[in-house]
Write a protein that binds this DNA or RNA. Structure first.
Lengths: 213, 213
DNA sequence: CAATCTAAGGGGCATTTACCCCTAATTAAC
DNA sequence: GTTAATTAGGGGTAAATGCCCCTTAGATTG
């Protein structure tokens, strides 16, 4: 039998890692090299050549270093490693961020094991794997892209602080600015995002990952 | 070899179910009977005697029928089935709700497989399994219990609707009530939860699972 | 059957937010 | 080197929100 392709699973849920690891070991063409609990751990491992896998199954939400940042950093130093995102997150922004960061596929954890096997094979053969729904998302994103909500650094800071019980006055104090400036940020953020009140702001911040509840 | 104990895994993440299923099949004393994608599916299965397991690994967050409700209903009809909660949720409220519903243990998905095996064995031997952290939680809950935030049905309804960009006026319309009544709900909810504004309300709703962003 | 609890509704008022307007200094771009 | 964009700031006003107060009709319960 030809040499198996090596896979690493990066996920903070140890049980899931171990379980997927054993699934992968059951596949003909693949074997698990090791598992990691977060992105930083994985990047550190890759510094040693013996620990560089062919393919990595990467969770998106992880402590320390999340999947998006990990993928971005990984692509700089080790572009040969294929990253397949594996997540529960189904929202557009997250998926697109992950793909822009360099993932060659996005699988939901709600997936059958034969589909996982298939995805792994396709990634090796075609270089990528996309379900129909993700492909549609990609096409759609070509249109509405660009103009969208690009917040300035200070507006992002404000956005994060606004996801708390603080009044704008208090946010102003925290950011060492006048309340009026904060209200200015708010107004322009509302305009950019097309929202009407602070609740919309919190929902947006959660959806896009600016704020994790 | 004596007959193995049967286990069912209930989790909407198919991959995880399948993976845990194969882990369980690797344990000496246990075998997977089948897996389910939500609570309703499992309860329906149990109507047939051949599909009643000794033990069930139950996810908390699931579509259709969640882990808490499933456990509650299960305990009425099939009290002999031991329910072990298996979740990513680490917050007090959720854990306590699940245990009150009748789960005999609460495992985080961030768990090693030998610990899972151990937990399954302990549940059969002692009737329950608790990590130190969960035990501490239980002790703590004895003190502060009761007085805590028990929202009335209408207040809960309001809480969920308040986690949107709707103004209270619109919430009032949706619930077919006067704005003033809604404001009354808001005031008493704020009082019970010790919060100061609607952001706090959204954060609470997310933390306790009333609202999933 | 009286006492309490609860759900529904409302009044008044201070504060906070939302939504416009506009300036002035710095920075970046052409 | 003028233009445009960014960042910081402010003024005024209307609506929404937060925070007290209070009434009444039905349950619940002692």
């Amino acid at each position: 039998m030809s040499k198996k392709y090596t896979v690493v699973i990066v996920d903070d849920h140890t049980l899931l890692s171990q379980a997927i690891s054993s699934l992968v070991n059951g596949f003909d063409q693949f074997e698990t090299l090791y598992t990691c609990k977060n992105g930083q751990e994985f990047i550190d491992k890759c510094k040693n050549e013996a620990f560089i896998p062919d393919l990595v199954l990467m969770d998106v939400n992880m402590p320390i270093l999340n999947g998006i940042e990990t993928t971005r950093q990984l692509k700089k130093e080790f572009p040969q490693i294929k990253v397949l995102a594996l997540s529960v997150e189904e929202n557009e922004e997250t998926i697109l961020k992950m793909l822009r960061a360099g993932a060659v596929g996005y699988l939901l954890k709600d997936t059958r094991k034969d589909i996982l096997n298939n995805a792994l094979i396709e990634v090796l053969e075609k270089g990528f794997y996309h379900t129909n729904s993700v492909s549609q998302l990609l096409i759609g994103s070509l249109h509405k892209e660009e103009q969208g909500a690009c917040l300035k650094p200070r507006e992002e800071e404000f956005l994060k602080l606004a996801c708390s019980e603080m009044a704008y006055k208090e946010i102003a104090e925290t950011m060492c600015l006048s309340p009026k400036t904060i209200e200015g940020y708010r107004d322009s953020v509302y305009e950019k995002l097309g929202i009407k009140n602070r609740i919309g702001l919190v929902l947006y911040a959660i959806k896009t990952g600016y704020f994790k509840p």
